[in-house]
């Protein structure tokens, strides 16, 4: 059911979307524009802490994420949308920790005061993912009506990764029955791409790990994990893996190359952000959604399917 308050939300792109995930940033904005949704970027945002800062101390990560929530509140927003799984997860986790762990709340207050800004109080701002945003603000029915260039005939494996669903307790709105997202078998991306005409394959590794946290520090492990995802997607008949996380996306691209060079295992499945597929379905050009910025070269496949 489309919700009006999602027509204009705060936007938290995060660091990766200004670097390796630039095409995700570009395609998310382009899709928003095409759907008549307004994104207002958080003023002077900072890194959420990603996968790394918590290993130095989890409360620093809580503060870093809470600072962004405080900015959203200060700008008068009740919702902040983050397309990056890592940012989305950390903002959700900060919300959970601040309302359940007094020690985290205390450190957040102390660091906020020292930094000279208001302390974020939990319950003020809700963090949503780009999937929630499109699904709730527009919905599949409306999306299907707006499709100009159906994704018909494209076989897609929907890959959600780790941070979108785990651990369950930081996502209180999930697993609430019909209509809500499932943490065990997420389906929001499947729903949206199906509405755009894509042929989703039955993919068992939707929430498998790509080893993104150790993409560089333990490359051999990451390559094995990624190769498993790539070969499984191919075995399921997928031509494209649709992603929703810049770490997963660049991990899949980078270790697809590494698997070929180090293990001699070549895979041909292409990797595209789900927003890139949606954008093209809405009639945007491949360039407009940043397909040329991806490492994985999907241009010939897209031409063959009459897209972009």
């Amino acid at each position: 059911m489309p919700k009006d308050d999602l027509k204009r939300v705060a936007y938290y792109p995060g660091c990766a979307l200004e670097g390796t995930g630039h095409s995700y940033n570009r395609s998310t904005k382009a899709v928003g524009k095409a759907l008549g949704l307004e994104l207002v970027e958080l003023k002077n945002w900072n890194c959420c802490g990603a996968m790394e800062v918590k290993n130095v101390d989890p409360k620093i990560q809580t503060y870093l994420s809470a600072r962004n929530l405080a900015i959203a509140e200060d700008m008068g927003f009740e919702k902040v949308m983050s397309p990056c799984n890592g940012c989305y997860h950390n903002l959700k986790k900060a919300e959970y920790d601040l309302s359940h762990d007094p020690a985290s709340a205390e450190v957040n207050a102390q660091l906020s005061t020292k930094s000279g800004h208001a302390t974020y109080q939990p319950g003020k701002v809700e963090t949503i993912h780009a999937l929630d945003w499109i699904k709730d603000a527009v919905g599949e029915e409306e999306l299907a009506k707006r499709v100009k260039n159906s994704l018909k005939g494209i076989k897609v494996a929907n890959y959600y990764g780790c941070m979108y669903t785990r651990p369950r307790h930081i996502f209180p709105e999930k697993d609430k029955g019909p209509g809500s997202e499932s943490t065990l078998k997420p389906h929001f991306m499947d729903d949206l791409l199906a509405a755009a005409g894509a042929e989703n394959v039955d993919f068992p590794l939707k929430t498998a790990c790509c080893g993104g946290a150790h993409a560089l520090s333990d490359s051999d492990t990451s390559t094995k994990l990624v190769l498993n995802i790539l070969t499984t997607a191919e075995a399921c008949g997928a031509e494209v893996i649709a992603t929703e996380c810049p770490t997963c996306h660049s991990g899949l691209e980078m270790h697809q190359v590494r698997a070929e060079k180090v293990l001699g295992r070549k895979t041909n499945v292409k990797i595209l952000y789900f927003t890139q597929l949606l954008g093209m379905a809405l009639g945007l050009s491949a360039r407009k959604v940043g397909v040329h910025e991806n490492f994985s070269d999907a241009s010939s496949l897209l031409k063959e399917k009459g897209l972009g």
């Binding site: 660091c15 990766a16 200004e18 670097g19 390796t20 900072n46 890194c47 802490g49 990603a50 790394e52 800062v53 290993n55 130095v56 620093i60 870093l64 946290a213 150790h214 560089l216 520090s217 333990d218």
Partner: peptide, 23 residues
Amino acid sequence: SPSTHFDESFTGSVIATGKIEEG
């Protein structure tokens, strides 16, 4: 471990500037 080195490089960058630059 390599992981700890990565965490420290990353956290150092965030503390210094508020953001990271992947390169």
